[in-house]
Write a protein that binds this DNA or RNA. Structure first.
Lengths: 137, 137
DNA sequence: GCAAATCTTTCGAATCGTTCTAATTTTCAT
DNA sequence: ATGAAAATTAGAACGATTCGAAAGATTTGC
């Protein structure tokens, strides 16, 4: 039997992040199990609810570190709120403004034609498609 | 000779907005001339610099009203900062994270394949593509 | 093993962009 | 002109995020 959270631990080490108690706690919530979209506040509630002692500032720090290390993707769909996506493969999103919910769209589901050449001195870092939804009345 | 700002005035009336002094001042900056991307703070500086007396709160109110009336589009590319685009036709954007600058991409330049059907109870309100750029070193 | 050096976490305060509030001023139809 | 309705204002309030300094861990050299 392998140790339970060995994988998370390795992911952190590979990313150059020490496997501290709070990073492991957040890593367990984010890096195992199904893909999810979380805000810092949601994740803080969740980790507190699990009986772990982690400050909101550390949740922010950790989300930013994970994102910098490529373990998460940040998604910006509303000014004033950041979502973090545990699905780091290239893909797109539905965003429902009325409910604030995000849903993944596979990259292949929206074939993109050629992207225009970027301006001189820049290169393309990523292409994201957001399909905004409204509730039908 | 036609009166200079008649067109802006009509646009406001058509949108159901009274052509007040400050809305006219902002309308002149936004609704005539070339397409542009502005933040509330930038626009406030600009209108103040032009010698007009307009509060920041009014700039925010007006940007939101113009957006609601379809005279502007709001673009979200960074959490914590909203851009407003005077180009209201369907189109996409380059966004350079290092400089914070936005550039338009014609809708035809990025042909989108079929968009997956939206979840039940929702309909597509819009599709936006953001091509994120980084500076080449 | 142990202590020094380094990295992390923490909490509260600070900051940012934005919205709200209540009072004043402007606009428009009469 | 007059009065009702709408708009503007300054500043307070707000939520999300970041900062800063001190306290707490972890690693490294010995």
């Amino acid at each position: 039997m392998t140790r339970p959270f060995q994988k998370v631990c390795e992911q952190l080490r590979d990313a150059g992040l020490r496997p501290t108690r709070q990073r492991m706690a957040l890593g367990k919530l984010l890096l195992e199990g199904a893909d999810r979209h979380v805000t810092a506040e949601q994740l803080h509630q969740e980790v507190i609810g699990a009986g772990m002692q982690v400050s909101l500032a550390t949740v922010y720090n950790t989300l930013n570190q994970f994102t910098g290390a490529g373990l998460l993707k940040e998604i910006v769909v509303e000014s004033g709120r950041s979502y973090f996506d545990t699905n780091i493969s290239a893909h797109h999103h539905f965003f429902c403004e009325s409910t604030g919910s995000l849903m993944d769209i596979d990259a292949e589901s929206i074939p993109l034609g050629t992207i225009p050449a970027p301006p001189p001195g820049t290169e393309i870092a990523g292409v994201e498609v957001i399909v905004r939804l409204r509730a039908t009345k």
